[in-house]
């Protein structure tokens, strides 16, 4: 297993898709810088009430402070505002990683050498999560530093811990998203299918929320609970709504093992073309 993991890291770190996704992260950073210094508002969500004078948002809203001295949470929302778009990077890279070897047939070489196909698959997922994790946390560290520095705010240790928790909640949801992409590829054997289905799945949560509001039936509630975009959207309210922590953690803790077990069952008797 450690050898397979080293091999997957090597493969991923030398891949063109990773370089491309690095550029996309870079482009997001540039865009973020421009929006910070031009003080342009960004909105991919709605305000649904407030607590202690701080708006509680559903989705992602940034650079829209009502006072000249924004609260910590307004700055935190701003520094993570593009998480509503970053999932695209997670989706594209993870789909590319899982599909590449099946498409080129190189996975057959590993299997023919006695390697377990599921271990290879698992190592691919772990390598993808680790690399995307580093990118996600570095990106978040930069955007947070820019936001706080531009507003002349020095966050306390407790605030930094809360910001880290928010970034980690986003990452947990993204980790589930990568597992969904991996599993969907194993089911469909098609990158086109994954790249078409996932965005529809993600954005459908917005429509379901809009249609049902807070008066959701069991089906709509279940659908939203298995939807990464729904969890991403509500993650920034975790400081005010404790149940968000519970539902997001449950989504990650149950979602990841279930998807990995499903993949195992699908790969167990899979024949390689």
């Amino acid at each position: 297993m450690p050898n397979q993991l080293r091999s997957e890291f090597y493969r991923l770190l030398h891949s063109r898709s990773l370089r491309l996704m690095g550029l996309v992260f870079g482009a997001f950073l540039v865009l973020f810088g421009i929006m910070t210094f031009t003080e342009s508002p960004f909105s991919m969500g709605t305000v649904r009430g407030e607590q202690d004078g701080i708006p509680l948002i559903n989705g992602f809203i940034g650079f829209s402070y009502e006072s000249s001295e924004p609260s910590f949470w307004e700055l935190a929302y701003t520094s993570t505002a593009f998480s509503g778009l970053l999932w695209v990077v997670f989706m594209v890279l993870s789909t590319d990683v899982v599909a590449k070897e099946f498409q080129t047939g190189t996975i057959k070489l590993s299997v023919a050498h006695g390697q377990n196909i599921y271990k290879i698959y698992l190592c691919k997922w772990v390598a993808t999560i680790c690399v995307l994790g580093v990118m996600h946390y570095v990106y978040s560290a930069i955007t947070s530093a820019v936001t706080f520095a531009y507003n002349g705010v020095v966050p306390s240790g407790e605030e930094l811990a809360q910001l880290l928790a928010l970034v980690s909640f986003h990452f947990l949801v993204m980790a589930v998203l990568t597992a969904i992409c991996f599993t969907l590829y194993v089911i469909t054997d098609s990158t086109v299918a994954v790249l078409a289905v996932i965005p529809i799945f993600m954005f459908s949560s917005v429509f379901v929320t809009a249609i049902y509001g807070d008066d959701r039936n069991l089906l709509a509630e279940t659908y939203l609970n298995i939807n990464p975009m729904y969890h991403l959207s509500q993650a920034s309210r975790f400081w005010a709504e404790g149940e968000v922590i519970y539902s997001t953690t449950l989504f990650g803790v149950i979602g990841i093992p279930v998807l990995l077990i499903l993949s195992y069952l699908l790969l167990r008797r899979r024949e390689l073309k």
């Binding site: 493969r11 063109r16 070897e101 080129t104 047939g105 190189t106 057959k108 070489l109 023919a112 050498h113």
Partner: peptide, 13 residues
Amino acid sequence: TGCIIDGPAVAPG
């Protein structure tokens, strides 16, 4: 063992 199956399988990138 070492093998070639169904033609050359190499990572193109």
